[in-house]
Structures are given as C-alpha cells and as structure tokens.
C-alpha cells in the first residue's frame, strides 16, 4: 500500500518535472512574476513614504473617496465582462449580429443598460465614504458620485473593449488582473503620481482612475473649477476613446477552443 503511494507519487513527480520546462508559462511564473511583484512592492513602499499629509489632502479622505471610485470601477468592469462573455459564449451575440445589430449599438446598449445600476452604486459608495469614513467634502459634494458614475460608465465601455477584443472568454477574464491592480496603483488613490518612476507615470494615462481622481480631489479640497466639464474632460475623452475601441475591436463569436484550433490547422480543416 505504502509502496504503491510512493510509486505513484514518484511517477507523477517525474511527469511534472518533464512538463514544467516544456510549459511556455513556466519562465513567467517562476521568474518574471515574482520579480514584478517585488518591484511593485518597492514602488508601493516608495509611494507611501512620499505621501505628505501636509499638502491639503488628508490620506484618510483621499483613500476613502478613491477606493469608493475604485469599487465602482472594478464592479462595473467585472460585471459587464461577465454578462458580455456569457452572451457571446451562448451564441446570442452571433444571432444578434446576424439580425443586423451593429457593434456600436451593442456597446451603446450595454453602456446605457448598466448606467442606472452604476448610478445607484455611485450614490451608495459616495454616501458610504462620507458616513463610514467621515469624509467631509469641502468642495462640490456632488462631484464624488459624479466621478464614480462617470468612471463606472467608462469602465463598462472599457470592459466591452477588452472582452470584445479577447478571442475567448477565458482571455477576457485573464485580462482583469492586468487591468484592475495597475488602475489602483497608478490612479493616485494610494500615493501621488510624482512618487512613481517616469515611465509608470506615463503609463498611468492608460487607466481611467487617473482621470477620475482629479475631479474627486478637487471636490475634497474645494478646488473644483467653475466649469465642472473641464474637470471631467479627461474622463469623458477616455470614455469616448474606449467606446470607439470597443466598436472597432468587437468580436461577436468565440474563437474555437485552442486545442481544436490547433488540430484544425494541422488537418487544414474547418
């Protein structure tokens, strides 16, 4: 009995020892990801030590409002991806497309359909950040739910872009860790962008949190511009860009599973 367990364990260990070097993800898993994680921790530590409460922002208030927006961002992005991928895997999206419904209509429909829920969520998280964290908005209080709402709507468009461009549903979900944590770290929620290396500072323009935090901070610090549209300009432009990208890179049908696709290439069948 014991011999059998050991024998099986040894054969499995041998198999795994052979498999790992042949897996193309083994190098990223073993070396690149740990190095990246250590680097992120270093940036985080640098950022925390850089933050200065004397600059007019109480960290507690910034964190609370920033995280409130981030919650809306994650939730809208993830929920939209889930609904969209389910529609595509189920074949309904292909049927819709065959009827003649354009990608722009689908993206616009998703954005409009999610908007009321995002609005309710934005009001809820803004209220929670005010009541639970005791954030006092010295500026325009409405700017907090407005930022969260706009960010949520933009997140839906962004989610449509990443999920629609992904060949398969699994790819769409695999993209989430690549998008959401950087959005938090590069969004000036935890520490100022000046604490980041120049290249990361430039990269932060690719994430919507950066544009949402600006009017949020303005609302907290009473620096809201006379024309609110100016503070939200970045977020609105980012949203329009995401909408356009989602429309252009729209896939209405799942790619064949990887194994089947490889096999069909080998046999040159369809």
């Amino acid at each position: 009995m014991t011999f059998s367990i050991i024998d099986n364990a040894v054969s499995i260990a041998k198999r795994i020892f052979k498999e790992i070097p042949r897996d193309r993800m083994s190098v990223p898993h073993l070396f690149i990801f740990p190095a990246l994680a250590i680097y992120i921790v270093k940036i985080f530590a640098d950022g925390i030590s850089y933050a200065d409460p004397a600059d007019g922002l109480a960290p507690r208030e910034t964190l609370a409002a920033g995280f409130a927006c981030f919650v809306v961002h994650i939730s809208a992005f993830g929920f939209c991806a889930r609904v969209f991928v389910r529609e595509r895997i189920g074949g309904a999206l292909e049927r819709v497309q065959a009827i003649g419904v354009s990608p722009a209509s689908v993206v616009a429909g998703y954005v409009c359909g999610f908007a009321p829920f995002v609005l309710v969520q934005s009001l809820a998280v803004a209220a929670a950040s005010a009541l639970i964290f005791g954030v006092s908005f010295r500026g325009a209080a409405w700017a907090v739910p407005a930022s969260a709402f706009l960010l949520g709507v933009v997140s839906v468009a962004m989610s449509m872009f990443t999920s629609g461009a992904a060949r398969r549903g699994t790819e769409a979900f695999a993209a989430i860790p690549l998008i959401l944590p950087p959005a938090l770290l590069l969004g000036e929620v935890i520490f100022p962008l000046e604490a980041l290396p120049a290249w990361l500072n430039a990269l932060s323009y690719a994430f919507p949190m950066r544009y949402a935090i600006e009017p949020l901070n303005a609302a907290i610090t009473c620096e809201m511009a006379g024309c609110p549209a100016r503070d939200f300009f970045g977020l609105i432009v980012y949203g329009i860009a995401m909408f356009a990208l989602a429309t252009v890179f729209f896939r209405h049908r799942e790619a064949a599973p990887r194994a089947v696709h490889r096999m069909s290439r080998k046999t040159d069948g369809g």
């Binding site: 389910r86 529609e87 895997i89 189920g90 074949g91 309904a92 292909e94 049927r95 819709v96 065959a98 009827i99 003649g100 419904v101």
Partner: peptide, 30 residues
C-alpha cells in the same frame, strides 16, 4: 436579413429572461 431566420448551434438565448422576453428582444431587433 429581413428574409433570414438563423438558429445557431448553441441555444443563443438569454437565461435570465423569460421565453416571452427573449422573443420580444429578438422581435424588436427585427
């Protein structure tokens, strides 16, 4: 497209909607 009805290999339905709501959605798309 007005003359074509397409039934894909998958059910291609919305699980959370009722049978009537599914038909209404596709009917409106037409």
């Amino acid at each position: 497209r007005q003359s074509i009805g397409y039934m894909p290999r998958e059910d291609a339905l919305y699980d959370k909607l009722t049978a009537t709501e599914n038909l209404r959605f596709f009917g409106r798309a037409h």
